[in-house]
Amino acid sequence: MKKIALLLISVLMVCLLAGCGDASGKLSDGNKVLFQVGKNKVTKNDFYKVMRDYDAGDFIVKQAAKFIVNQEIETTDQIKADAKKQFEETIAEYDDLKTALEKLGYESEEELMEDVIDSVKSDLLIDKYIEDNWDNLVSQYAPLKIRVMTFTQADNGDDFKTTAANALNEIKAGETFSAVADKYMKKDSDAYKLTAESLYVTTSSGYDTVVKDYLKEVTTPGLSEVLTNSAGTVAYIVQVTNNNISQLRDDFITHLKGISTISTEMYGFYLKKHNFTLYDIDLYNIIKENYQSYLVQD
């Protein structure tokens, strides 16, 4: 009896541990032999692994992107018209439709048109993403319009901090920022370019930490005191000219569209929204290695 009990417990443990592990999807006819040369059989499983390792990741992310585009962007008459124009321009590059389809790898005109429509829609997806994610983007990037004046020992002498203080007083007394900048800064310096009003976001480069820290705390347009970098070698005056997001909207959207990572962020957002999930460990690892930002499942 004891032996039976022990045996049952062992079987239970084996059952618990066996069959567990990461999922590995299988083809329904993976053992089908595609061809045989001598004793070498090449099965669907064999060929699938070759194709998978070649670039299954690219195929999967494109399929996912196609789904997102079709879910998020309605195919309007305008989109159809734009797609038709693009389609005709594409065909015009070849001798005829048949040649174009053959060279581009499409089996039918409808298939090509479907891809062109998807392409037109994907261009519109970024606008939708910005709209859908507006509050988060504003919070993340905190756009402002600013000007920055820079004072250094090299350009302004040993008493550059005093010069900066004088410049600040002149602005407070009514001089324009640009006039004071012209007076104290070298026009051919890189820093002079920052004296022009420009859009600043939290990811903007080329600004000292002390400037960025100041801008993090700004709540209204205005002028900073003289800010000095941690080494005490550079002084700044920062003017925030506008923090009204409604007025900054167009410039901010233009800026967002220019960010190289916005497309990746966008797809990450929509993949998460639509619960993109991989159910095969090899595919999961391929996406993890080559398309890390597309991996959104828990």
């Binding site: 567990c20 592990g21 990461d22 999922a23 590995s24 999807g25 299988k26 083809l27 329904s28 006819d29 699938y48 998978r52 299954a56 195929f59 999967i60 399929q63 996912a64 789904f67 997102i68 879910q71 993949l271 639509h274 619960n275 993109f276 999930t277 991989l278 159910y279 095969d280 460990i281 595919l283 999961y284």
Partner: peptide
């Protein structure tokens, strides 16, 4: 562990929204 899924008796490679791509489709 990565969980698996099957639809209509076929293993699923990946899913998005209500669309599932089986290993055979892949």
């Amino acid at each position: 562990d990565l969980p698996g899924k099957s639809v209509g008796g076929k293993d699923v490679a990946f899913g998005i929204g209500d669309q599932y791509t089986t290993m055979d489709d892949l």
